[in-house]
Design a binder for these strands. Structure first.
Lengths: 214, 214
DNA sequence: ATCTGTGAAGCACTTCACAGCG
DNA sequence: CGCTGTGAAGTGCTTCACAGAT
């Protein structure tokens, strides 16, 4: 069955909410309650889950632990994922420092750059390697995901190189439209675009006066 | 007229591509070419633009400069936008350091934290202030946008406080579902969720063998 | 000849509403 | 009685296809 991409995008959201409930030792949750927490309609949640099976009990709701396990399995979150970072400028360093990936099973195991000043440098237990060695390094020790944190001008080349090395998913921080062949996943992280669409909605509201508002 | 939100989300993308073309002194571009660069169908681009007016010339295409100006006006990018950052941990510092906001007219003019060790610290020309003074500081000198880079546990409280201070748009880096009242814009930056949905598609492909691939 | 602007058709996603199970 | 699972209805977005402008 072909599952709508938006559904796949919501599953991690559900998984995260369930993790939180599990940490609080909640045993059961209804689509109603989950929906209120996540700002998603209960019908949406039930429909989304129904693409994958029947995980609930009528009259009761969903067993938190069981549903979380199912979602992890469905999303492939029951494995460790190896990632390579390309670009260790300011942004790249912040990504290496970020404590949010590892607890979810995403480990950065290689870091690359083009700048001779950075190559060889030790950051967060990794030695920065030359991008020219990307192919050699990754063919000996493949990774699943590439994280791109290079200037826009070279982002497409880096992405092409990563894909040649067998990377199947790319998390792209470079602010530019890039293309990947079919079958390769890519998601962009674009704070500026996010801001630029929000301004559309707030541009006419007028900044609140310096005095007002409680 | 009510414009589909997805349309608004694409406009900044068009604007960015046009900026690039303008920098290369391109005068005219067709929906066809723009679409190829951005991986959007030409019909989509024409339809999107048609919500706002008639900007093209039949048989020729769009004047790059003129269309870019129109998009800037439509999106409210012809102004400067004042932003306040809350949370100056590792992530917050990286955001303060980020060179991508200012050139697009987005300036971080205040930084707040709860940690006494950080309050008073000078980072990137800003003095970190106490979150308890948020209300006082922002009522004297309002900002348009709040950037939230605090731990998940306090993100909702911070968001509520920002909205009380007249902030109308929020860029949220905290990994948690939060709610905003109607009329307030919020976009989330969630690299982990992005990874967790991509794994669904690649989980069965099998990691390439250590030797293979050219 | 080329490329826009746009109704109409088509497709994808969401919500409804209720049968059926616990 | 409460809540799931799900066809069917409804909504919103995308693509088609072509009239019309240059």
């Amino acid at each position: 069955m072909e599952i709508p991409p938006v559904v796949i995008d919501r599953l991690p959201l559900y998984a995260r909410a369930l993790s939180m409930l599990e940490a609080r030792e909640r045993e059961v949750v209804s689509s109603q309650e989950l929906g209120t927490r996540l700002d998603v309609t209960p019908a949406q949640i039930r429909k989304d889950l129904s693409y994958f099976g029947r995980f609930g009990k009528q009259g009761r709701g969903y067993n938190v632990r069981k549903l979380l396990d199912e979602l992890h399995r469905i999303l492939g979150l029951d494995k460790q994922w190896r990632m390579a970072l390309v670009g260790v400028g300011k942004l790249g360093r912040a990504i290496l420092d970020y404590q949010g990936f590892a607890p979810q099973g995403f480990r950065i195991v290689e870091a690359f750059d083009t700048d001779p000043k950075r190559i060889g440098e030790q950051i967060s237990n990794l030695t920065v390697k030359n991008v020219e060695d990307l192919q050699r390094v990754l063919s000996q020790n493949p990774v699943d995901v590439g994280i791109v944190a290079v200037p826009a001008e070279i982002a497409q080349d880096i992405i092409d190189a990563l894909i040649k090395c067998g990377v199947r998913a790319i998390l792209n921080y470079a602010p530019i439209a890039t293309r990947v062949p079919p079958g390769i996943q890519m998601k962009r992280i674009e704070p500026v675009l996010a801001l630029q669409s929000m301004t559309y909605y707030i541009k006419n509201a007028g900044r609140p006066a310096a005095s007002a508002r409680s």
